[in-house]
């Protein structure tokens, strides 16, 4: 469960303060599939960064699973990112010098898991995301779809309760994008909360709940009754 109350985030451009988020109140229940849509500069990525504990709000409070996490230490927030949150980025953000398997293994290394256990989990993930044949290839040797699958495998290897996807199909063609969305939606079907930030209205409408943003404010928040 994610609960944001009166969240504000201001950036300063010279002497001028720009509200990236202005008094955001949002509650996302566990297992929800939410899309956040809006034009560039609407604050949707900033909202995702705050939910993902990559950014700190200037005001307001943030609770996750009934725990106030706004004022946690950097180390505690890193632990939450490691254990409860998985990120999927538009530009994949794979480490170029590491192989697919090594990229997937990174969160497990950070968690301090023993090597043998890591290898077993990485093999399972490679199997699950049909990357077994590409395990020892570097990102430059992978297609866009394969790269995003590696990124999703990395995001889910720790079995997080929340997946945050920022324009996950932005660098992929339509068909590969659809395949990637299916992968993410499959994760949602296993009970993972899925929050997708997108420009793409068609993609956004796949979510059960669509949040519309403009100028740092939530304008619309619709739940699709069909789901």
């Amino acid at each position: 469960m994610i609960r944001l109350t009166a969240i504000t985030r201001t950036f300063h451009m010279g002497d001028q303060a720009v509200y990236a988020l202005n008094d955001i109140n949002l509650h996302i229940a566990s297992g929800e599939y939410v899309s956040i849509m809006g034009p560039s500069g609407s604050g949707k990525s900033t909202l995702l960064n705050i939910i993902g504990l990559l950014d700190k709000p200037d005001g307001g409070s943030y609770e996750m699973d009934n725990r106030l996490i706004t004022d946690l230490s950097e180390t505690e927030q890193a632990q939450i990112r490691r254990e409860k949150i998985g990120f999927v980025f538009q530009s994949f953000h794979l480490v170029p010098r590491l192989t697919a398997a090594e990229n997937i293994e990174l969160p497990l290394i950070l968690s301090g898991m023993p090597s043998a256990q890591r290898q077993s989990l990485v093999n399972d993930a490679l199997q699950a995301f049909e990357l077994k044949e590409r395990a020892h290839h570097r990102p430059a040797e992978l297609s866009g779809g394969q790269r995003q699958r590696v990124a999703i495998a990395r995001a889910t290897i720790m079995h997080p309760s929340v997946i945050l996807a920022d324009e996950p199909t932005g660098n992929l063609d339509h068909q590969i994008g659809a395949e990637v969305m299916l992968l993410l939606e499959n994760l949602h079907h296993t009970g993972t909360t899925l929050i997708v930030v997108t420009h793409d209205r068609e993609l956004g409408l796949r979510a059960h709940r669509q949040i519309g943003m403009r100028d740092g404010k939530i304008l619309t928040d619709q739940t699709d009754d069909a789901h």
Binding site: E83, V95, L110, R154
Partner: peptide, 11 residues
């Protein structure tokens, strides 16, 4: 990226 996937500043 390392920070996003849970690395601390100390790491």
């Amino acid at each position: 990226l390392l920070k996003a996937i849970g690395a601390t500043s100390t790491d």
